[in-house]
Design a protein around this nucleic acid. Structure first.
Length: 270
DNA sequence: CGACACACCTGGATGC
DNA sequence: TGCATCCAGGTGTGTC
């Protein structure tokens, strides 16, 4: 369930358990993730102390003096810190053994995630073409408007393009467009500056709110429990095809855009 | 470049 | 109950 809020929640949850800890060993049970687990995870990481955990887009960078593991959770990945004695289960692909008797355990049924390596002083190629952080100062309605002028693609696909802005996945793209009153299939180049201002504001508001709500799942990193509960109740359109729009009562519709399900209200979004 | 289809993988829900 | 089909929160890659 990793969209940007979940990745940020993961970062915050891992921070107190990892920073200052030494990695003593790395156990790879299944190396074949989206890409093979980087060799450096086993040849360089053991012995290193974690200095910080950074999030860039939906990636996590675990900084050490010798380099930084670059992690992505894909569609189904999760990271937890557990006592080393807890037996690994199906799809627990990688363990980082820590110097306090715990392990950082990576579980990912679909294996779309990855564990790569960024050498000190370099920027990993996967991070090179990313757009601005949606919660940062470089992201604004004006920025979106400027970049979109010649674009014919649907505004939803534009918003989900990680070169345009990072971190907006299928759920939050639908929710932000709904909140901004913009039809997801509208050509990106035909959205006005004013409406992009609204859209940028809604993206920020919704992501920030979700991160705030994600905070309640921090305990999961020690004792796994249920899923974060914020979305089911708080989504306005995502996954609600056929159900009434919470504002106008009209039926929420579903269409496919860019091979992804897209939900919207035809009355509230133009 | 931009736009788009496809690929990667497993599991859960649904339908017959 | 068993089996086929469809769908899922991401994103790099290849083609036009």
């Amino acid at each position: 369930m990793p969209e940007l809020p979940e990745v940020e929640t993961t970062r915050r949850g891992l921070y107190p358990h990892l920073v200052g800890r030494r990695v003593t060993d790395v156990v790879v049970r299944r190396a074949k993730l989206r890409w093979p687990v980087a060799e450096e995870l086993q040849t360089v990481l053991p012995g290193q102390v974690v200095n910080a955990i950074e999030r860039r887009a939906k990636y996590l960078l675990v900084h050490t003096a010798a380099g930084s593991p670059l992690l992505h959770l894909g569609m189904s990945g999760s990271l937890r810190v557990l006592p080393a004695a807890v037996k690994p289960e199906l799809h627990d692909h990688v363990d980082w053994c820590l110097d306090n008797g715990h392990v950082l355990r990576f579980n990912d049924p679909r294996r779309f995630g990855c564990q790569l390596w960024q050498a000190p002083g370099t920027l990993h190629p996967l991070l090179q073409d990313l757009g601005p952080e949606p919660l940062g100062d470089d992201f604004s309605g004006r920025y979106l408007w400027n970049l979109s002028r010649a674009r014919k693609a649907a505004v939803k696909l534009f918003l989900m393009d990680q070169r345009v802005v990072v971190g907006v996945g299928n759920i939050y793209a639908a929710e932000a467009l709904y909140a901004a009153g913009i039809h997801p299939a509208r050509a990106a180049g035909k959205v006005s500056a004013e409406r992009y201002d609204r859209l940028a504001a809604e993206v920020r508001r919704i992501l920030a709110y979700a991160i705030e709500r994600g905070g309640t799942t921090l305990r999961d990193f020690i004792s796994p429990d249920g899923q974060p509960g914020y979305f089911e109740q708080e989504l306005f359109v995502y996954g609600r095809a056929g159900e009434p729009c919470r504002l106008c009562g009209g039926a929420v519709r579903s269409v496919t855009l860019g091979q992804r399900s897209t939900f919207y209200c035809a009355r509230c979004q133009r």
